[in-house]
Design a binder for these strands. Structure first.
Lengths: 152, 152
DNA sequence: GGTTGAAATTTGAAGCTTGAAATAAAATGG
DNA sequence: CCATTTTATTTCAAGCTTCAAATTTCAACC
């Protein structure tokens, strides 16, 4: 067994390295979306959540799912609305809630961008085969566990 | 062997899951720094890079290392300067370059925050033991490889 | 049923972030 | 040696993001 730094130090270095990878990948995707589709990552993320939900979605659910603030969700949805990709309607039973959904144009637009986005991810992680992904999934699950515990 | 979705789809899902974990962790750390130390993640990141360098650092090296734009580095360094944590001086040989370094107060401040930061990371990733970290390191290396290739 | 408190969203101010344009200094190359 | 191009940094406008305050609506309780 070779000499290893203390666990806390290794956890820190692992975190920094993980952060670097995701930041680099996000930067690449941001550039990709900007150059090829004249859009931004947050707009794409919101559209992805709405597309996936496949039904009008509460603003609060949206921001919770994306791990962003309510105020942030408002701004990005406003932008999608201005672009004709999304629509907001007041809730009928509870008049406090605002429901958001993609327009038909928004759905078509998203499908196009999402397909290119998936292809780009595929390129960026070309080194990952099924087994690597299995292992990564297990590790992420493990990290999510303690992570979520601390958040509560 | 059980049935599995196509690789491209699994790579995408893995990426989304990785992004969720880092976003959640970043949110937690941001809140931690704000509440306990009245500071922000970007300021901490810049200070960390300067502390680590342990010598005056070029603005461009700083932004490259942190994977942020030049303009961004300027703003955050300005803020650190205003707080008395950093100092900027013009380069002597090449008058275009600007060198940044932490002040003594900045170094002391960083040591304090960094220690709490490391302890917090340690808590967040308490589930990761040496072996898990080894495996994660290998996987990150693998991802970095194709990732970096695509960036060029 | 009216008050009080909780919940959903938006607004506003401050700060972060980017890409592009501007500025200034250095390197290159007739 | 002068003009051109490249490099380092800052500035600017636009957009993203957060937190806290304000608004509106609902729920609960006397």
């Amino acid at each position: 067994m070779t000499e290893r730094p203390p666990l806390s130090r290794r956890r820190l270095r692992m975190w920094i390295r993980m952060l670097r990878l995701t930041r680099g990948t996000e930067n690449h995707l941001r550039e990709f979306l900007r150059v090829k589709y004249d859009t931004t990552l947050p707009r794409f993320d919101v559209a992805a959540a709405l597309y996936r939900a496949d039904a009008p979605m509460k603003m609060s659910d949206l921001s919770q799912q994306l791990l962003v603030s309510n105020g942030n969700a408002t701004v990005v949805v406003e932008r999608l609305e201005k672009d004709g990709h999304a629509r907001r309607v007041q809730g009928t039973e509870d008049k406090r809630v605002v429901l958001v959904e993609l327009t038909d144009a928004g759905r078509a637009w998203f499908r196009e961008v999402a397909s290119a986005h998936e292809a780009e991810i595929d390129r960026l992680f070309a080194s990952m085969d099924h087994d690597n992904i299995d292992t990564t999934r297990d590790l992420l699950r493990l990290m999510e566990k303690t992570n979520d515990d601390q958040l509560s």
